[in-house]
């Protein structure tokens, strides 16, 4: 298979996922406001958990758990986006 431009782009996205343990762990804008304005406690837990907090459960190292979660998510989102586009093209031509 010839190397195409988007292979490079996908590798770049996976590289970003590997950097994910370096991300700031401070609350984001909405979480900060929810804490400051006192409505954080109204948040409800999810009904089920798969990979909560972007960390694959059962792995001791937080960095490894985060990188794995990032790689899984990046590949999953790529597969869904690519398949959706291919499906749409096929439907458009039908």
């Amino acid at each position: 298979m010839r190397f195409k431009w988007w292979h490079g782009a996908l590798i770049f996205a996976l590289f970003l996922a590997v950097l994910s343990p370096l991300a700031s762990s401070s609350p984001d804008g909405l979480e900060r406001i929810a804490e400051d304005k006192g409505f954080m406690e109204t948040a409800r837990e999810a009904f089920f958990e798969a990979i909560p907090d972007y960390m694959v459960p059962g792995i001791k190292s937080e960095a490894v758990a985060t990188i794995l979660a990032g790689l899984i998510g990046t590949l999953l989102v790529f597969a869904i986006g690519y398949s959706l586009a291919r499906l749409l093209k096929a439907k458009g031509e039908a």
């Binding site: 996205a13 900060r32 990046t74 869904i80 986006g81």
Partner: peptide
């Protein structure tokens, strides 16, 4: 479509610090 979705997902994981202990 695939690589943009992948890039956006990965980039969204990289919280950057802004003022006052917020990212």
């Amino acid at each position: 479509m695939g690589v943009l979705a992948a890039f956006i997902f990965a980039a969204q994981m990289l919280n950057f610090p802004i003022a006052g202990g917020t990212s």
